[in-house]
Nucleic acid binder design. Structure first.
Length: 153
DNA sequence: GCCAACGTTGGC
DNA sequence: GCCAACGTTGGC
């Protein structure tokens, strides 16, 4: 069982958007970064727990928990010329881009802010707090996961 | 295979 | 809106 953190801009997709989806599920489309793709394709497994992080907004931070309910499969939006995530180089017979499905688990009782996370020596190894980090999906160790959750109260 | 130019991410 | 950091592209 692994833990993860995934970023999303709440203006395009927030924890409330996920909560309000039918079945509270959504596919995590639009990832166009090879490192992130590899994690979705190879490492994210059914039942893995995932923090949702809101980026590029007024209150940056971890807002909720999701669960992987479908493992890596082709991101079909890459084949749709009308979609902004269209990638003409992705061949449907050999798809370049992958995605997973996630399900809403819960919203945290408060946002655990980026500012707060950066202050904690326990989290110095977390990719999120490193300067210039642009990965939209990153692993979170069990120790980091538990520590972050302990901040919620 | 190098690396400059370019586009994107994302905090501030 | 700015801009640093980073990934990708493409000429050589």
């Amino acid at each position: 069982m692994n833990n993860w953190l995934m970023k999303s801009e709440p203006e395009s997709f927030s924890i409330d958007d996920l909560k309000n989806r039918p079945n509270q599920c959504e596919h995590w489309d639009g990832v166009r970064n090879y490192q992130a793709r590899n994690m979705m394709r190879d490492e994210m497994k059914l039942g893995d727990q995932v923090f949702l992080y809101h980026s590029n907004c007024d209150e940056l931070g971890i807002v909720g928990i999701m669960e992987v309910v479908k493992e890596g499969y082709p991101d079909f939006l890459a084949f749709d010329p009308d979609d902004s995530h269209f990638d003409p180089k992705s061949d449907p017979a050999k798809p370049t881009w992958m995605m997973v499905d996630v399900k809403y688990v819960r919203t945290l009782s408060r946002t655990i802010t980026l500012h707060e996370l950066k202050q904690k020596p326990e989290l110095s190894g977390l990719a999120l707090v490193r300067r210039g980090n642009r990965l939209s999906i990153m692993p979170v160790s069990k120790a980091q996961w538990d520590f972050i959750l302990s901040l919620e109260q």
